[in-house]
Amino acid sequence: MPAMFRCIVLVPSYNSGLLLRSTVSAVLAVWLDVVVVTDGSTDGSDRTLDDMLPAHAGLKILHLAQNGGKGHAVLQGALWALQAGYTHALTMDADGQHPAQAVPDFIALSRSAPQALVLGVPVFGPEAPALRVWGRKLSNILIGMETGGAVKDCLFGFRVYPLKPLVTVLQASRFMRGFDFDPEVAARMVWQGVPALNKPAAVQYFNAAEGGISHFHYVRDNTRLVFMHLRLLFAWARRVCCGKPLSSS
């Protein structure tokens, strides 16, 4: 175990509405160090946390002028966290779906295995849309093939990353900036020798009346996932058939 282990909760946010404040408040109740990256938000949610700063010394807000996608926001937050002396980051969505109460347990697991990528495996409740639950099954079958079964769920963004390998993998590629971020970064980190630990975590879905927000575009983002898996399968096939190393690009 390294002499120092410092973990921060990293929350990328784009037009998250009122759910951003409730999500951050729930995290601060269980973990003191939080960085929120507002990714070019235009709904005013990027300023809803300003009054919380004086009371929470461990809360940092990074405002990005333009929307660059989740992967871009995570990269900017990870670079800031590394410079600030953190070694790990737990990422969670701003929309309240991820379980803030599980943050300490996930970070404790990461502390016990600091070289590992700790991946949340979603436990869906009855309110979860059936299309979302079944739609991820194909991606998980493919990612299981691409990673030798190391990654049990590739689309769940509740994770603890060791920051240095995360930044290395992201900076080596022009991809992994949008909806393809969560699955591809997990696969490529495993390919680079980062062990993966999988831990169940509850998921909560909110309907529109409860403020639920989704930025998933069915055609655009599914197309992006198809091309992502083609990239990964091609790289995986090169290694299996030709013995060539798996690159990050």
Rank of each mutant, 00 (worst) to 15 (best):
D105W: 01
A102Y: 04
A116K: 12
I143S: 10
V190E: 03
D182H: 03
D105A: 15
D153S: 06
V123T: 13
H98N: 13
P195I: 10
F175V: 05
Q101V: 09
R188P: 03
P99W: 06
Y86K: 04
H217W: 03
G157Y: 02
L90A: 04
D182S: 09
D95V: 14
F158T: 06
Q83L: 04
V194C: 13
I107N: 02
R132L: 12
T168S: 14
Q83W: 04
V121E: 00
P126C: 01
M176G: 00
A94D: 15
M92V: 11
L90E: 03
E146A: 15
F106I: 02
Y161V: 04
S214K: 05
D95N: 15
G125N: 02
G211H: 08
A208T: 09
M189W: 07
R111N: 12
S112M: 14
A84R: 10
F156T: 01
P183A: 02
S110D: 07
Q192S: 15
L82V: 08
C154Y: 02
W191L: 00
A116S: 15
V160K: 09
V190W: 07
F216A: 08
A172T: 10
E184I: 00
R159H: 08
F179H: 05
G148C: 08
L166E: 06
L138G: 00
H88C: 10
V121G: 01
D180N: 13
A201G: 03
A94P: 03
D93A: 09
A209N: 14
C154Q: 03
V151D: 01
A202T: 05
C154R: 03
A84H: 04
P183H: 05
D95Q: 14
L131I: 06
Y205M: 09
K137N: 01
R177N: 14
V133T: 03
I213V: 15
